[in-house]
Amino acid sequence: MSQLLDIPCTTIKGEEKRLKDFSAKAYLVVNTASKCGFTPQYKGLENLWQKYKDQGLVVLGFPCNQFGKQEPGNEGQISEFCELNFGVSFPLFKKVDVNGPEAHPLYVALKKQAPGLLGSQGVKWNFTKFLVSADGAEVQRFAPVAKPEDLEGEIQALLK
């Protein structure tokens, strides 16, 4: 099993979890923001979660304020916003940095396993998506413009 699945993360409620704690067949890790043009993707992410959670998909949201300061709230505000506006019930985590010296170790590992265009190690914007296989060995990266529903084929392939 990949070390990627062993990296500790703190949920929005303050609990320490690792990806492997979710025992999924596929993990969809997304850096999110409440005041972004892509924020409506929360609805699509929730739809994927509802449609595939019983088959082994776990959607994991990591709020991030690094892009245009589009996630200014605290954890309570973020959680409330997501629940009230988009009915989000998939796991959310504490706000993290995805780039730079303070980047969360999970994002350091994800970017290394699935570099961006031209080998870039950076995350370019909110709602960049990483689809991770059950053992953490396979990681696919999707740009913010990729709608959650556009990932269904890749998700279904991992859930078989």
Rank of each mutant, 00 (worst) to 15 (best):
L110T: 12
S89G: 07
G44S: 12
D54N: 15
Y42G: 05
F22R: 06
F62G: 09
Q41Y: 05
C64W: 05
F62A: 12
S133N: 10
G56V: 07
E149L: 08
K51M: 10
L151S: 05
S79Q: 14
L48D: 12
L117P: 13
G61D: 09
L106V: 07
Q70R: 09
K51F: 07
K129F: 01
F38R: 14
Y52C: 09
L110W: 06
L118N: 14
I7S: 12
V29F: 04
Y52H: 15
V58E: 08
T39Q: 12
G37Y: 10
P72F: 04
N65R: 04
N31W: 10
Y27E: 00
P144D: 08
G76I: 09
E152I: 10
Q70C: 08
Y42R: 13
G76Q: 14
P72M: 05
S133G: 14
V108T: 15
I78D: 00
P105W: 04
V59Q: 10
A157N: 12
S2G: 09
K17G: 11
I12Y: 01
T10F: 09
G87V: 05
G76P: 00
E152Y: 06
L159A: 02
K17C: 04
P105F: 03
V98G: 11
Q50C: 11
L158I: 03
I12V: 12
V59W: 04
I155F: 13
Q3W: 00
A137L: 12
A114R: 11
K13M: 01
Q140R: 15
D150P: 03
K160N: 14
D150W: 08
P72T: 11
V132G: 05
G100Y: 05
V98R: 11
C82M: 04
E71D: 04
A109I: 02
R141W: 02
E152N: 10
A109T: 13
A109E: 15
Y52D: 03
L110N: 03
G56A: 10
F142E: 02
E75P: 02
N126H: 07
L117V: 06
N65T: 11
G76C: 01
E102P: 03
G44P: 13
Q113F: 09
G87D: 14
C36L: 07
A134P: 01
L151D: 05
N47E: 15
E154Y: 06
T10V: 14
G122M: 13
S133W: 06
G56D: 06
A26E: 05
G61N: 10
N31F: 12
K69W: 02
F142R: 11
E16P: 00
E154Q: 15
F90N: 02
S79H: 14
K147D: 10
V58P: 03
V88G: 13
S2E: 01
T11V: 03
K111F: 07
H104Q: 13
V108K: 15
Y107P: 08
F90C: 11
E75A: 15
D21G: 12
